[in-house]
Design a binder for these strands. Sequence first.
DNA 1: GCCTTTCTCTACTTTATAAGTAGGGATAAT
DNA 2: ATTATCCCTACTTATAAAGTAGAGAAAGGC
Lengths: 124, 124
Amino acid sequence: MRISARTQYALGAMLALAAADGPLHAEQIAVSQDIPRRFCDNILLQLRRAGLIQSQRGPDGGYWLARPAAEIALADVIRVTEGMEPVSRPLPKAAAPLAGIWAELRAHQDRLLGETTLADLVTH
Amino acid sequence: MRISARTQYALGAMLALAAADGPLHAEQIAVSQDIPRRFCDNILLQLRRAGLIQSQRGPDGGYWLARPAAEIALADVIRVTEGMEPVSRPLPKAAAPLAGIWAELRAHQDRLLGETTLADLVTH
DNA sequence: GCCTTTCTCTACTTTATAAGTAGGGATAAT
DNA sequence: ATTATCCCTACTTATAAAGTAGAGAAAGGC
């Protein structure tokens, strides 16, 4: 499956925000999810730029979800942190018959991750 | 999805062997599958050690499948080249609710790759 | 026995990606 | 003004993937 630490962290942060009542500080998220402090900033920035969360600066600042948790799929988060996959190198010739298999795996994955929302995983 | 070049190459080599009548040289496999020559050796060695293929040295040497193509699943090959996944680092806390999702993805993947054999993909 | 062809093995180098860090700048509240 | 917070670019370090090198061993033909 291979899932990067960055993505795990991002999902953890999003789930933390989904479970919280109001805004959370980067500090709170980092501590509660065991994310290295500066790396957490880094990831939150990326999530904000992607439009998944919103933020406010200064004291009383913090982060919160841009949309209801029920409207944010895991795939939305993963798409951001994993980025667009690098244009596949010219595939080995015999990869051709395998293309169908990869496509099917990808399809199932997209379906599951596209249908599961943050709300589905938050235990209130 | 993330699939290494090594694994793509290994699957290509195995499919080439499955499609061939008799033994093939590393050279033939490397050329037909666009695998860097020495890297191909490297991979074939790994496949032989794993018991998926057999070999013979000297002139008239070459490689062939250790079992019928219909009895070698893609998962058998992938397991070899991807190796055992490194003991997962202490997962981020919030990863907990995600475990079920990862497990389901993995299960589907294992099923599909475990059921599809080389014979299913060779176009005679 | 010698020569050629092929696989066998260990170890190394290079390249790419992920993971994490640093240092300062901008904004909002008090 | 001061403080707490997010914002931003760029850098460093760690890890893994990709690929290479060089010598050794078996098998067959002569």
